[in-house]
Design a protein around this nucleic acid. Sequence first.
DNA 1: AAGTGTACA
Length: 696
Amino acid sequence: MTNTNTKTKTKTEATPAKTANGPSRSKGGSDQVVSIPKRHEEERKRLPIYSARDAILAGIKKHPSVIIVGETGSGKTTQIPQYILEAGWAQYGAIAVTQPRRVAATSLARRVAEEAGTKLGQRVGYTVRFDDTSSPHTKLKYLTDGMLMREILSDPLLHRYNYVLLDEAHERTLRTDILFGMLKDIQSKRHQLKPNGSATTTPRIVDELKIIVMSATLDAERFAKYFNNAEILYVEGRQFPVRVFNTLEPQPDYLDSALVTALQIHTEQGPGDVLVFLTGQEEIENLEKLLLEQRQRLPAEAQDLLVCPLFAALPPAQQALVFTPAPPRTRKIILATNIAETSITLPGIRYVIDTGVHKSRGYSSKIGIESLLVAPISKSSARQRTGRAGREALGYCYRLYTEDGFAQLEEDSEPEILRCNLAAAILQLKAAGVNDVLDFDYMDRPPKLALLRALEQLYALNALDDTGRLSKLGKWMAEFPLDPCFAKVLFESQAHQCTHEVIDIIALLSVDTLFMMPFHKREEAAEARQKFTSLDGDHITFLNLQKAYQSVKGDSQWCSDHFVNHRGMHHVQEVRKQLRQVCERVKVNPNVSCGHDFDRVLQCFTTGFFHQTALLQPDGTYRSVIGSQYVRIHPSSTLFGKRHEAILYNELVFTTRLYVRGVSAIQANWIPEASPRYFRQGQLTAKAALPSVKGP
DNA sequence: AAGTGTACA
């Protein structure tokens, strides 16, 4: 069994005979030998979690579900799956470990494959969108939670797994929350199907599914309660202490406080880089400017400072700067959004400055509007930020708010499922066989209105029939990794004979920032962009960009010359390829083109976005068809400042004002034609807001 | 006339 010196349970669970569709065992080859390679053995034993190994295995053996609480650095994500593997418990069924992010899934799999002495894709592998290293031999698979959701669609009881580990559960992303309910349901169904279970209605032999929820926060009781009184196990982290300082008075201007604090650390404190948490790009660029001004005033003998901005839209080359050590006698000051809170781990940070705020996405199901506003963070976010100072040595955290201010923060951030549009998630649930989505076992139940809005939207798109069940079209839509609106547009593209163009545009719309707007070169960038601009709006402009990009074969120099997001365009090509593949699979010809008849394309988009349209008012403003809201065209749009009788938009977000992004000009009479079901029913205020549009 | 936290299929 294992070569470890410790006493490990070598007895495996009573495992039923191999099922017909179970994974086959590979014969021969060193890959079958379950052992810890010598060079990693000592290292693995030094991890804090090692001492809890037997207790964890015992807990997993005894309980259907286990909650593991452990901070970063405990090794829970890399070690627990290996313990299960080494115990021989994954001989027939495999182990899945989910991650909210792709990079985490791929890098963890690489490290664990190395530790386990196997080639990536053999016993250990990963599956993320566009990249799958798993094979029939893979016993331990790291995958994104979205990927596991898709696997459920093709394998509703997840037969190939006996263990599912949900990592970073405390983040409460929409997908982990949906997975919670789905897995709980699968676990109970598989229990009922078990040979020695109460109901043996099927000849198929099914193993039980173990669920292991891993979280970094101490509030595990809610998880435990939700998963049928699961066992809670605590594992120690490996974290250095961090001294926390609060301000004595509330700060009227946290940007100014951040500037003062950063300079104070720089001139008075010992070595170590500084990480400042800010809300967005504009704020980061402002503080960068202020810091660089102050840098000029530093005494000649003082150490230098290097300012590194860090946010997702930053070009990769500049993002990489934060990982390269600062030159001698230079201190790095990193100005980051909350990308540095979870997604990117920075080395060398000893000082954290926490402004106590972030931008957070909200959604009002009442008016169907998303917002992106500055809001206070939660206590757990504050602790997470603080922890970033203690990764390598003891650190310091300066909270730019009072102790009382901290006490008033919410304990945890609101789960995403409570503050987003649920249409896509509901479509997935229905496709996975959960018809009654109102009664689904949510850990945090979304407001009923939000669920009803999602059902209404799916009904309006013809994805549901009159009884609320998934229609044939709805099943078709769920095949695609797309928002329901886009899936509908893609379906309609067949009738409009413009599938080729529609696939391209949908792929292009999947990237946030295709045209870069560098701080200091805005005019140049705007000029470069002119070459692609279509008077029809952003959709056709993007299509022009794709054509130009293809004609230069994706040349990266061409991209940077034209201020085009090279990485983004690469992603577009991957999405495009995948959409074309799925089309082929469902017997839709992806090559049918409308040539230059772009009216067809935009009419087609109206069939999925009739609810995201606005009409020009006599005073020159636009009013949304639904909700009758005044909306402004975002300055990043090609239609900014232009007037057309009607527009459709990809996104409606409230920031400083209510802005629409991804905008194209349409004809007003296309709107009611786009969804007779919706406008005839008039269940929303659509008709009232459409005085100039005659419904059928 | 003026601006987009993060992630995923």
